[in-house]
């Protein structure tokens, strides 16, 4: 029996989202096939990796991922410039973690100033993230969205508890929006519907089904992403067609495997290489499940994933 390639044609496609302005603007998404299945359809864009930068020094990051930034991370502007110029970052994700009430509890005005300063120092697209405190994120992200008006940033994350104010701010200031729910395809769909019912354009959304680190629930994120992507392609479900985000760095660099020194766990090998490989492998697995936008921390992990992306397209 002769071989006939069992190719699929899907009825749906992933929305293409563009971010930033000018020569360094970027697009991701846009494919009408499963990840890297270019043999049967169009894959117009590669996944984009954004370097994570914080508004406060990364004292909570493990030493091995603090090190590459030790001379620049005292100030978000220097840090962001270093990512763009030295590390050749294609995009930057500014996490306003210092606004968290349990951290420095910075004000929305402080956050707005940081956003403005960072934006004036870089020309690659910017992702602006709150501290993941549902209540505090509302005023912080409203101020941040206004401070970055018309710069075509991504604002996030809108969750069930705070999506109204954050989506309205993103809409009023011409930004894209991350909608995050917790590891459940139905919650994810419902949140996308709620946000679009406010009049927010579904083609300006990015879905974050919640990331998990390798060994710490990665399989849940992986399967939720695969199911979302299949719903988008095979059922042409318009509410499931935004591209997906994997917020890899913050989940990976808090687990034991990225911190424990080799002296404590000799069987686990070199801690620095282990941490980098942990972040890179988590990211590489999730791009195969459908993630198009990644937020990462270690420069070596980012280059390794970019290298594998080059080989995948």
């Amino acid at each position: 029996m002769a071989f006939v390639a069992p190719k699929e044609t899907y009825s749906g496609k992933v929305y293409q989202v563009n971010i930033g302005t000018g020569a360094n603007a970027l697009s991701f998404g846009g494919e009408n096939v499963l990840p890297f299945n270019a043999f049967e359809g169009a894959v117009p864009n590669k996944p984009v990796i954004a370097y994570e930068v914080q508004d406060v020094p990364p004292s909570d990051w493990p030493e091995n991922v603090q090190k590459p930034y030790s001379s620049v991370s005292g100030d978000p502007v220097t840090w962001a410039k270093f990512c763009q110029e030295t590390l050749k970052a294609k995009a930057i994700a500014l996490r306003l973690v210092g606004t968290h009430p349990d951290r420095e509890n910075r004000s929305p005005e402080d956050a707005a100033k940081t956003v403005k300063d960072v934006l004036s120092a870089i020309n690659v697209p910017l992702i602006i993230l709150g501290s993941n405190h549902a209540e505090k994120d509302s005023p912080v992200l409203i101020a941040a969205a206004e401070a970055s008006k018309d710069k075509n940033c991504i604002i996030g994350k809108a969750q069930e508890a705070n999506y109204k104010t954050i989506a309205a701010a993103a809409m009023a200031n011409n930004h894209k929006l991350i909608a995050m729910s917790e590891l459940d395809i139905n919650l994810s769909k419902q949140l996308n519907i709620l946000i679009t019912q406010m009049g927010f354009d579904k083609e300006r959304l990015i879905t974050d089904p919640m990331c998990s680190a390798l060994g710490y629930g990665l399989e849940y994120t992986y399967s939720v992403m695969e199911r979302i992507r299949l719903a988008a392609l095979t059922q042409n479900d318009l509410t499931m067609q935004p591209p997906m985000l994997a917020d890899v760095g913050m989940y990976v660099w808090k687990i034991k495997e990225t911190q424990a020194p080799e002296s404590e766990v000799p069987l686990w090998g070199n801690a620095e290489e282990r941490g980098i490989a942990w972040e890179a492998t988590t990211a590489a697995s999730l791009i195969m499940a459908g993630a198009e936008l990644l937020i990462m921390r270690h420069p070596k992990a980012v280059s390794a994933v970019e290298k594998v992306i080059e080989e995948l397209v």
């Binding site: 390798l214 000799p266 686990w268 070199n270 290489e273 282990r274 590489a284």
Partner: peptide, 27 residues
């Protein structure tokens, strides 16, 4: 390691590596 990850996620029954450092094995 990342090429092996592609194989593991996408249907390989055997993946051949050239080196097996401890950190890589754990991953």
């Amino acid at each position: 390691a990342l090429i092996a990850a592609v194989g593991i996620a996408k249907y390989a029954s055997i993946v051949v590596l050239s080196s097996i450092e401890k950190w890589k094995n754990l991953v």
